[in-house]
């Protein structure tokens, strides 16, 4: 690793990049009380590409938001590396997200005033770190944006914008990348490019990736798929195919539609 160590003590080599133990998230109180996550135990191993699926309201997005330090947890624990999120104040959570987490959003969420390359290096700019130019080159080439680096998001297609977002997520060599429906706003061809890139980054660069999706084909790109229902982890598939994922999802149909 040539990047500067983030300011969090990472003791030893834990096999999990992120872990949730008895993770519970409750919204509201009294009559409006909703249990979104109900004692989830899960590990995201290093270098693995995990997809989280489930019908809408199953808690899959909430799980991701809690794991990524975007939402506070009610009880249990969530750790990134060895850092327990529930004990961190906003300031340290922000720093943790900056240094150890990468994000890809459904609606790209690039800064419209910045060029593609500026968006890619944004997290490192925020951290005041110099980007590792070799690594940057490698990512830029992988996402195939070499000739688009000086363009603003407004001048890029949706697929290109999402590739910029992926490059931004990876550029800082985060511990873990969270992708929230990354193909939701894309046509199938662009979506396939993004998914291939995410899988490739796990395989070749050992990047841990967690993706929330409701698309069985998207989930089939992952190394394993977790199924959530009613805030609980109900099933898991390793090395999934689209058909098997679809089949599993159909079982939820009795309770509700898949989004």
């Amino acid at each position: 690793m040539t990047t500067t160590q983030p300011p969090f003590a990472t003791t030893g080599e834990s096999s999990a990049a992120a872990r949730a133990t008895a993770l519970t998230k409750v919204y509201g109180e009294g009559e409006t009380r909703v249990v979104a996550l109900d004692g989830i135990d899960v590990e995201f191993s290093r270098g693995q590409f995990t997809a989280i699926m489930g019908p809408s309201g199953s808690g899959k997005s909430t799980l991701m938001h809690c794991m990524a330090g975007l939402d506070a947890i009610t009880s249990g624990s969530a750790t990134i590396g060895d850092v327990e999120l529930s004990r961190l104040k906003d300031k340290h959570l922000t720093r943790l997200r900056r240094d150890r987490i990468g994000f890809v959003f459904q609606s790209f969420n690039l800064v419209p005033t910045l060029t593609a390359i500026e968006n890619i290096t944004l997290t490192m700019d925020i951290a005041g770190r110099k980007p590792d130019s070799q690594w940057l080159d490698q990512i830029v080439d992988t996402v195939g944006l070499r000739d688009r680096l000086k363009h603003r998001p407004g001048q890029l297609s949706g697929g290109q914008q999402q590739r910029v977002a992926c490059a931004r997520a990876l550029a800082g060599r985060p511990e873990i990348v969270f992708a929230d429906e990354p193909t939701g706003n894309l046509d199938s061809r662009s979506g396939a490019e993004i998914l291939s890139f995410l899988r490739e980054s796990a395989r070749s660069f050992g990047q841990t990736v967690v993706m929330v999706t409701h698309d069985a084909v998207a989930a089939s790109y992952a190394d394993r798929v977790l199924f959530l229902a009613d805030g609980r982890l109900v099933d898991e598939l390793v090395a999934p195919s689209a058909d098997r994922v679809l089949e599993r999802m159909k079982q939820f149909d009795g309770k509700g539609r898949t989004s």
Partner: peptide
């Protein structure tokens, strides 16, 4: 919100 998510502090 995105800037906050990817680590720009308050």
């Amino acid at each position: 919100g995105m800037l906050r998510a990817i680590g720009l502090d308050r």
